[in-house]
Design a protein around this nucleic acid. Structure first.
Length: 1031
RNA sequence: GCCUUGGUGGCGGAAUUGGUAGACGCGCUGGAUUCAAAAUCCAGUGUCUUCGGACGUGUGGGUUCGAUUCCCACCCAAGGUACCA
């Protein structure tokens, strides 16, 4: 009987489902192994062949680990909140839950036909209330926690309150807002309840803050950076403004250092670690405060400090800095620098154009120029400003700062190379030590003082810390970098102008989204202060709304809900109308009056929803105990499974999902909920599968009103030979003649590619030889049904190009059609065979015939057991058989451990070719071979296994053990090289010594032939490897 | 600009620690089988060649008996990006 993959695959998929073959228990004597693929967002387009790549790899590893005796957790679920379903809802009115459900069903169908060993009983969906109940739960835990820098971990907010009650916050070292005031116990205890809540919000790990967002009034929504092009919205081209909005934030910055340190403990790809490291952006240096000289004095000179014209009330002073600010300076500029040792080289300062001081310090003379520059900068995106290194631009503000040591005036400029979002948005510019400052100074003729000993800075800045010796710097003269750093920081602290500081680029993560299809916050507001809903009343389910757009007043979509108020007496969602606002209607007193409102215990609920990453930041732990309604997971479950052993997914999640997940895991660890502070031991990024687009070439001329397509080879030849098109085809020659009368003559111009439009043809219309199915193409594009096709050798050959898979390029390949034609096992093998897992590689369906015929050969090899017409042929394995088998075991095992799945497929092919040639029918060979193949091609392996006489699934059959003894050789075919080039081969016994080998080789006639009488200068003999003769 | 990854036949790719470059597969060529096609099987397939051999892993150097592999400089492509002070 033939290899009937359709029947076999359907049979075993059914078997696995019915027998729950891959259902995993939370207690087992076996060692655990947790293999995880990043769960997908179920989009409407379904899976294309790129998606399953990582899933197949994880599945192979999971199945392998089962054969190796592990209790394997291999779950799958859906990241099912997201924008596309919401967009679809806005357009059609269909509830996102329905769209999502449909998409999930389609995904499930597609996944099922690929034969994955998922434990589907553990499926999670982030949009399912039973799931997001626990997302809300974590949010509440974060709200009720603060970060204690002394213990370097998160702690319950209650511990903070008791400290405040006893001693205020002067001894507290916490991650908190910049504007947190200091208070003692008496002040704290005197605060009203609302004031206390306000203070506590500044400490909580999730907190409310005014954050700038890109607000698009026309769309009534907030836009992401990449939704804005040239200052207007990508969709519709509406203006976008920066607007402050009160939003939830996550205090991830508290964990910056631990997120950095943790990278050393985990086996993740270095590029991914690098991008997290860069994202966190730790730099060590100092913060330095420069006083801004008032206009009067900076113009006249800088004689001492005497001013009494400025009152202290005008001082804008950051609360946390213990800098003794001279009261007579109205403004300070705080900068962060990694090179405080170069402070005597400062010759100007640069502020980001957005810096809040710009408007305050600019002199009237410079105002027009500065305003114009600020306005011009506002139109440029941050991306744009970053990418453009060549253009140097900036404007002098007219103001001067005072050097903290020399008291010299320093001109203050603004420049768009300084970004407001990094550090303090201000730079102390040291042109001799920083190339950007250097270029800026050169461009604007600002002096470049040299403060380095023995260094020429006439051409470029000098930034090598290691060889730095400071000069022209008062008390720093003669010091190397490290010593100078120490000294200058001490001095800055002594004079109250700065301190050593570690700066992180990482910013707190905004956690509010003005969307409908996301997790609702378990939050209601009493007098404007957020209150958490008690955990026992979760989940707080998404309300129904009439439409999914923002409200007319600009509130998020949940503002459309009529039932969206929290009844604190009955603990349930009730109608908004029940929120009683006595006596405030029409009041112009605002907040003050609101405080006096009588609510009857019914309060408005939060209108924002959580962002996409909320649901994915702990899902890996939820899989351990997904149906638990009393806890996110039981202690037993988390203690058994601990963490993810292998996590496979795309590198695009490097600084999103993978950073936030690590943050939440560390928080969960601090609170004692999880035993590991890193959730995934090993991570692998699978590469992207690109498409191989096909192009047809349409001549820019028409013939009888129809398009003319010319085969690629004809054009190529004509272009290469600089010839005329009509010389390369008799049909074209005739066309040119016909066109002559109408056209007034042949255009005598050499053929060039610009005479043709390359048009995407659907890749399914092209075969492995790049030949287009012309008739099918005409049907596919009816506008070309009468088009002419100029063929070469009777074929139309298309052009090929590697591009990203996309609908518009007609190069998307769907797994369904491939499964139908070749089967899931072929698809699985082929996806792996394409190349290394981590690399991106092009898809070309044509090549699948290779692995498919391998499976047919494999099936044939088992003919004594599959073809009942033959009598069962049980034979003792030959030495050759065993050698083939064991070298395969060795290689496949190594490959799986190294995630080198592509080479395993080759190894299987070689193995089957060899065993076929050996006419092997031995069960002792074919049984272990079935197990070896089973992780890769599980359906055929199960079928062969059962035909070999087993009644149990192959899934847990022990992996064959490699035995060296079958590979021992007695002789080796030595490659004999001359000057490193292999010239001939010589078979010699492996136990032959170095000298004997040398003698044997030198005596060989081919050696003499090669040497042509020359005397060998040297003979290198590496026994068992190679012989190399130099001469 | 910076960071990361990569560059080997017509194509995807292989090559364990520096030791036979191009495994395996696709495609191509020729043959067998067939009324024919599909499928299958066999042989060949890096380039050049005076048929002896010579050259050949992005380019140019270097280390070595020997380099796809190690070092230096550069070029190109893809992805990322926050001019990080």
């Amino acid at each position: 009987m033939n290899y009937d993959f359709r029947e076999i695959e359907a049979k075993w998929q059914k078997y696995w489902a019915e027998n729950e073959t891959f259902k995993t228990s939370n207690d087992s004597e076996k060692p655990k192994f947790y293999a995880l693929s990043m769960f997908p967002y179920p989009s409407g387009a379904g899976l294309h062949v790129g998606h399953p790549l990582g899933y197949i790899a994880t599945d192979i590893y999971s199945r392998y680990k089962r054969h190796k005796g592990f209790n394997v957790l291999h779950p799958m679920g859906y990241d099912s909140f997201g924008l596309p379903a919401e967009q679809y809802a806005i357009q059609t009115g269909q509830h996102p839950a329905i769209t999502t459900e449909n998409n999930i069903n389609r995904y499930r169908e597609q996944l099922d036909q690929l034969g994955f060993s998922f434990d589907w009983s553990r499926e999670v969906r982030t949009s399912n209330p039973q799931y997001y109940k626990w997302t809300q739960w974590i949010f509440i835990q974060l709200f009720n926690a603060w970060y204690n820098k002394k213990s370097d971990k998160a702690e319950s907010i209650d511990s903070l309150i008791s400290i405040f009650e006893k001693e205020g916050n002067s001894n507290v070292e916490a991650a908190c807002d910049d504007d947190t005031p200091s208070f003692d116990a008496a002040i704290w205890n005197g605060y009203s309840d609302k004031e206390k809540q306000e203070i506590l919000l500044k400490y909580r790990l999730t907190y409310l803050a005014d954050t700038e967002v890109n607000w698009c009034p026309a769309l009534g929504t907030v836009l992401a950076n990449d939704e804005i092009v040239n200052g207007v919205s990508e969709r519709g081209g509406h203006p976008v403004i920066r607007k402050k909005m009160t939003q939830w934030s996550m205090r991830i910055t508290a964990y910056a250092q631990r997120l950095l340190d943790g990278l050393d403990k985990i086996d993740w790809p270095q590029p991914l670690k690098d991008s997290q490291t860069n994202w966190i952006g730790r730099s060590v240096g100092a913060s330095v405060t420069f006083n801004v000289l008032d206009a009067e004095r900076s113009r006249s000179d800088q004689d001492g400090i005497s001013g009494d014209d400025v009152t202290s009330s005008a001082v804008e002073k950051p609360y946390e800095d213990v800098i003794s600010t001279p009261l007579n300076h109205p403004y300070q500029i705080e900068v962060f620098t990694t090179r405080p040792d170069t402070i005597f080289g400062v010759s100007f300062m640069t502020l980001a154009p957005e810096h809040e001081l710009v408007a305050k310090i600019t002199t009237p003379e410079q105002k027009a120029e500065v305003d114009a520059y600020v306005e011009a900068t506002a139109k440029r995106s941050e991306r744009d400003r970053m990418a453009d290194v060549k253009t140097i631009s900036g404007v002098f503000t007219g103001a001067y700062a005072e050097h903290p040591f020399t008291k010299e005036p320093i001109p203050i400029w603004i420049g768009d190379y300084v970004l407001a979002s990094y550090g303090t948005g201000a730079v102390m510019a040291v042109p001799c030590g920083d190339q950007r400052d250097y270029d800026f100074a050169k461009h604007y003729n600002i002096p470049i003082p040299n403060i380095f000993e023995g260094v020429d800075i006439s051409e470029e800045a000098f930034a090598d810390k290691e060889t730095t010796v400071i000069a022209n710097s008062d008390f720093l003269n003669g010091l190397p970098y490290k010593k100078a750093m120490k000294k200058i920081i001490a001095e800055l602290e002594r004079i109250g102008h700065g301190k050593g500081k570690v700066n992180y680029r990482l910013r707190d993560a905004v956690f509010s989204r003005q969307r409908y299809w996301g997790e609702p916050f378990p939050v209601y507001y009493v007098d404007g202060m957020p209150q958490m809903i008690d955990v026992e009343h979760l989940p707080l389910e998404l309300p129904e709304v009439e439409k999914y757009l923002p409200t007319e007043t600009g509130e998020p979509p949940l503002g459309n809900a009529t039932e969206w108020a929290w009844d604190t007496k009955n603990n349930k969602v009730v109608s908004n109308d029940l929120v009683t606002l006595s006596a405030v209607e029409g009041s112009d007193k605002g907040d003050e009056m609101l405080n006096q409102v009588q609510h009857d215990g019914i309060y408005p609920l939060e209108l924002n929803t959580m962002p996409g990453w909320a649901g994915s930041s702990q899902y890996f732990n939820r899989y351990m105990d997904p149906r638990n309604d009393d806890a996110i997971f039981s202690p037993e479950a988390i203690n058994y499974w601990q963490d993810v052993d292998l996590y496979i997914g795309g590198s695009e999640h490097a600084t999103g999902h993978l950073l936030y997940s690590r943050f939440w895991q560390k928080f969960m660890f601090d609170m004692g909920y999880v035993p590991k502070d890193e959730f995934a031991k090993k991570l692998i990024n699978q590469g992207m599968i690109t498409g191989t687009s096909a192009f047809v070439y349409r001549w820019t001329k028409k013939y009888n009103g129809n398009a003319v397509f010319i085969s690629k080879g004809i054009i190529e030849k004509a272009v290469k030979e600089k010839g005329f098109l009509y010389d390369y085809s008799s049909v074209l020659d005739k066309m040119f003649s016909d066109l002559k009368s109408k056209d007034g003559g042949r255009k005598i111009a050499e053929t060039s590619w610009k005479h043709f439009d390359a048009i995407h043809a659907d890749v399914s219309l092209v075969n492995a030889s790049d030949e287009l199915d012309v008739e099918a193409f005409k049907k596919w594009q009816p506008e070309y049904k009468d088009a002419e096709f100029i063929l070469e050798d009777g074929k139309y050959i298309v052009g090929r190009e590697i591009e990203k898979m996309s609908k518009s390029k007609y190069n998307v390949v769907n797994p369904d059609a491939i499964c139908e034609e070749y089967g899931a096992d072929s698809l699985r093998l082929y996806e792996m065979f394409l190349g290394p897992l981590e690399q991106s590689k092009p898809w070309n369906t044509a090549g699948i015939t290779g692995v498919h015929s391998f499976l047919k050969k494999l099936w044939k090899l088992y003919a004594p057991y599959t073809n009942w017409s033959l009598s069962e042929a049980e034979a003792e394995p030959t030495a050759e058989n065993l050698k083939t088998l064991h070298k395969t075991i060795k290689k496949v095992e190594e490959d799986i451990e190294n995630f080198s799945f592509n080479t395993s497929v080759s190894t299987f092919m070689i193995c089957v070719n060899e065993l076929t040639a050996q006419k092997c029918t031995s069960k002792a060979i074919l049984e272990p071979l079935a197990i070896l193949v089973s992780p890769y091609a599980p359906h055929i392996a199960e079928e062969l296994w059962s035909r070999l006489g087993h009644s149990e699934s192959i899934a847990e059959a022990p992996f064959p053990t490699f035995e060296e003894k079958y590979l021992v050789e007695s002789s080796k075919e030595y490659p004999i090289s001359f000057n490193g080039k292999m010239r001939f081969k010589l078979e010699l016994p492996l136990d032959m010594g170095k000298d004997e080998i040398e003698a044997a080789v030198l005596a060989h006639e081919k050696t003499k032939e090669q040497l042509q009488g020359r005397e060998p200068k040297k003979v290198i003999v590496v026994p068992g490897k190679i012989v190399n003769i130099v001469g």
